[in-house]
Computed example of a mutant assay.
Amino acid sequence: MPFSNTHNKFKLNFKSEEEYPDLSKHNNHMAKVLTPDLYKKLRDKETPSGFTLDDVIQTGVDNPGHPFIMTVGCVAGDEESYTVFKDLFDPIIQDRHGGYKPTDKHKTDLNHENLKVGSQPAAGPGRGQRGGRDRHGEGETGRGEAERALNSLTGEFKGKYYPLKGMTEQEQQQLIDDHFLPLTPWPLAASHSRHNDNKSFLVWVNEEDHLRVISMEKGGNMKEVFRRFCVGLQKIEEIFKKAGHPFMWNEHLGYVLTCPSNLGTGLRGGVHVKLPHLSKHAKFEEILTRLRLQKRGTGGVDTAAVGSVFDISNADRLGSSEVEQVQLVVDGVKLMVEMEKKLEKGQSIDDMIPAQK
Rank of each mutant, 00 (worst) to 15 (best):
N262S: 08
C74A: 11
F3W: 07
I287W: 00
P185H: 03
L175A: 04
Y100G: 03
D351T: 10
I69D: 12
M216L: 15
K345C: 07
V56C: 15
V56L: 11
A282M: 08
R296A: 12
K107M: 12
G131I: 06
Q129A: 09
E156S: 13
D316P: 06
T289V: 09
P91F: 03
R127Y: 00
I176S: 06
T289A: 13
I92G: 05
W186F: 14
S16P: 12
A305R: 02
M167H: 04
K11W: 05
K199P: 06
L183H: 12
E145I: 08
D54R: 09
E207N: 10
G144M: 14
F68S: 15
G155M: 09
E224Y: 09
V205C: 09
R96W: 11
L293V: 01
A304R: 12
N27M: 13
T52L: 01
F68M: 15
E285G: 09
M30H: 03
M339R: 02
K341V: 10
V205I: 14
D62I: 15
E145D: 12
T303D: 10
L175G: 00
E285K: 14
S261E: 04
R296H: 07
V61Q: 08
N206E: 07
P182Q: 07
K101N: 15
Y100P: 00
G99A: 14
G124Q: 05
S320R: 11
E286P: 07
I239G: 03
G144N: 15
T298F: 01
L202A: 12
Q356T: 11
V117Q: 13
